[in-house]
């Protein structure tokens, strides 16, 4: 039913935050509000919120080592197309030392004995794809992709 009331739209959300819990919490609240306003289904919002949360926590801990002055930029594109499909891309940019998400290694090594590393498993589970920008000269840029058809 919802799809009958939705028109084709392309919306964008951008934020720049420092690597602090309070900034991350505010970002998450604004991120959820943006997706809600654009009628993204609540279960998809949950998945994207977890992925965003876990990835940025990873940057804060392993990239910036909890330094509060690290910069993180987030851009979200929501595209609701003619086929009644939401295509959502979440791009996260940081300026910490380079790291690469090794999907196979993470999925293999995290188990019930692991206290850490689980966040990356959750990201890999909750989004359809993760694209890492290997061409970037400094820092890291990843894009989470998630699609849902109404």
């Amino acid at each position: 039913m919802l799809s009958k009331f939705l028109k084709e739209t392309k919306m964008r959300f951008e934020r720049k935050i420092f690597s602090t819990f309070s900034d991350l919490r505010d970002l998450e609240n604004d991120f959820v509000s943006f997706l809600e306003v654009n009628r993204v289904p609540s279960d998809v919002i949950y998945d994207l919120k977890i992925a965003l949360h876990e990835y940025i926590l990873n940057v804060m801990e392993h990239g910036y080592h909890w330094a509060p002055d690290g910069i993180i930029e987030v851009a979200v594109d929501v595209d609701f197309d003619r086929s009644k499909k939401f295509n959502i891309e979440v791009e996260i940019r940081d300026y910490a030392p380079k790291f690469v998400i090794d999907k196979e290694k993470i999925m293999k090594e995290v188990n019930n004995r692991s206290f850490r590393g689980r966040g990356l498993v959750m990201i890999l589970t909750f989004v359809d794809d993760i694209i890492y920008d290997h061409e970037l000269k400094d820092g890291n840029r990843v894009k989470f992709v998630k699609s849902v058809k109404l």
Binding site: Y46, K49, E54, R113, S114, R116, R118
Partner: peptide, 15 residues
């Protein structure tokens, strides 16, 4: 809502 930190504490209790 539960994140990896909450699950990490469950893993401590579970282990």
């Amino acid at each position: 809502y539960i994140d990896s930190m909450g699950i990490g504490l469950l893993s401590i209790a579970g282990n």
